[in-house]
């Protein structure tokens, strides 16, 4: 039986990165279509910590590879360990969520397996040996259906396009293995976390983003985010200017989000920003410029100053409670 191997990811704080569950559900869909068995792998110093969260995901087995050398993620140490396991299991597909780690790691795994790879898949088509992937190109202006023709096929998953797999208890068998550890020419120095009390951008139900129109003043955006329990995002221009941390950037080259409600305040709507939020369920645009391209994708638009609209919106929304 063909094997689909999905790589789950532990955050620096030891918790499971939620996007892993979306990648696992893509893996399950792929396994069903290809008539394959789903396996998961988790590497780290203490991967057993989150193994329980993966048992109910519909996988046949969860492979845990623990090693002191794997404490800090490095592509050079993780890639040999995953490639060796994939070879041992005779995996036909190896995939992971399109997180920063997924994007860094999977091409290196693919290179080791002499395999072709599809990045950021948004759909799985066909069945059996004829499975193909759909993936975005040109900042989401084009979607391509691609077929990988190497014996092993590698991919990363755009998390917002697949529902999260169920976590918790289930039938998956937890197995430990000794990961292949290779010396690395790269040394981990440090990780500086940008801490936020708000929900993760890619996981939030509501996202409020600010653009150049804020002139760097995010107070009203943050106040509205607090009212709605929303995540705060930003356009590339305001991240480049250093007004807000880089990891708030929504766009093709930043985070791709698909919340139930996306509010764009003072964002003109450059192609590369639209690519990062076009899949949101409901989009609201607030901009002084009636001609701003953001209005072309917005369900509801207000042509007005965001500094007038946002406080009013916050007060009106508070009344609904």
């Amino acid at each position: 039986m063909p094997i689909v191997l999905i790589v789950a990811e532990q955050q620096p704080d030891g918790n499971l990165r939620k996007a892993s569950l979306n990648a696992i559900s893509a893996g399950k869909q792929l396994a069903d279509k290809a008539g394959a068995e789903l396996h998961l792998v988790l590497l780290g110093k203490e991967p057993a910590k989150v193994a329980d969260e993966l048992k109910g995901s519909g996988a046949k087995a969860v492979h845990l590879g623990a090693a002191a050398e794997l404490e800090h993620y490095l592509a050079e140490t993780y890639a040999p360990a995953i490639a060796a396991l994939a070879q041992e299991l005779k995996a036909d597909y190896v995939g992971m969520a399109s997180t920063a780690q997924g994007k860094d790691l999977m091409p290196r795994v693919a290179a080791r397996l002499k395999s072709a790879m599809a990045t950021d898949i948004t759909a799985i088509n066909g069945s059996g040996a004829d499975v193909t992937f759909t993936r975005p190109m040109w900042a989401g202006n084009v979607f391509a259906e691609v077929k990988l023709t190497t014996p092993v096929k590698v991919f990363t998953v755009r998390a917002t396009e697949f529902a999260a797999a169920a976590g918790g208890q289930g039938a998956a068998e937890v197995k430990t293995f000794a990961p292949k550890v290779e010396a690395s020419k790269t040394k981990f120095v440090e990780f500086k976390e940008v801490k936020s009390a708000r929900p993760e951008l890619t996981e939030a139900r509501v996202v409020i983003s600010g653009g150049r129109g804020t002139k760097g003043d995010f107070k009203e955006i943050e106040a509205l985010a607090d009212e709605l329990g929303a995540a705060v995002g930003a356009s590339r221009a305001v991240c480049d200017a250093g007004w807000v941390p880089n990891d708030l950037q929504v766009g093709q080259t930043g985070k791709v989000v698909a919340p139930a409600l996306y509010i764009a305040a003072g964002i003109s709507g450059a192609i590369q920003h639209l690519a990062g939020m076009k899949s949101s369920k409901t989009i609201v645009a607030i901009n002084k410029d009636a001609e701003a391209p953001i209005f072309q994708v917005a369900d509801y638009g207000i042509v007005a100053d965001l500094f007038k609209v946002l406080p009013e919106l916050r007060q009106e929304l508070a009344k609904l409670k």
Binding site: N141, V146, Y300, E312
Partner: peptide, 28 residues
């Protein structure tokens, strides 16, 4: 080793509307 079988455009979002004020927006 990668065959691109077909390109397509993303589904277009249906045209939205402009609302006159915040009260109308919250109502929608």
């Amino acid at each position: 080793a990668i065959q691109v079988l077909k390109l397509s455009s993303p589904p277009a979002r249906k045209a939205g509307i402009k609302v006159p004020d915040v009260a109308a927006l919250v109502d929608k």
